[in-house]
Design a protein around this nucleic acid. Sequence first.
DNA 1: TCGAATATATAAC
DNA 2: GTTATATATTCGA
Length: 192
Amino acid sequence: MEEFKLSTELSRNNWFGCLTDERDKLVASAFGASSKMVRAYLADYLRKISAVEPTLGKHYLTHEMVRLFDGHSISRPVTLNTDMISKFQRRVYRVLEQIPRGRVTTYGLISKHLGSAPRAVGGAVASNPWPLFVPCQRVVNGDLTIGNYGLCGSLDRTGTITKQNLLDREGVPIRGSQIDQRVLWNPTEKTD
DNA sequence: TCGAATATATAAC
DNA sequence: GTTATATATTCGA
């Protein structure tokens, strides 16, 4: 029976959690205001795929999460465990990984690029198992307002505020709740 | 398999 | 500002 490790860390009044497998691949990440919420969310996620309880421990990836939360890039590469996601999710996340730091794209542009529909993209982005590592905060509404952001599965106003703060620390210019059109990134752009 | 729900977009009023 | 509706994908009965 495979073992999974659940690691949490407190920084900046937020709890960060990583669920990793035996090969140190990242199965899922989560963050939020309380450690209880983060642990429950990740344990739930694990239960859906494996029917086991995680062992608790420390993992360096939680520290990398904090770096990402602060708007920096990670200092060590991460390998994602992609066993659980659908073909469509894979296509969407490949696009998300290409959005440059300091820029944003929209659900609509991604859907056009993939030949899909905005709501479908929204669904895939919403079920991103690796928030911060896969930068789903960089997907915003078509009118360049911030849009939604789920924290440990719950959608509310604090999620949107969190999303705005993340983008702000990444250098995205925002006035009020409007993002500057100049940082809009189109998936058809080359990323080299 | 089908009906309902979705972190949307667009057009019309 | 508000609605209506088109749309792809997912999930549960």
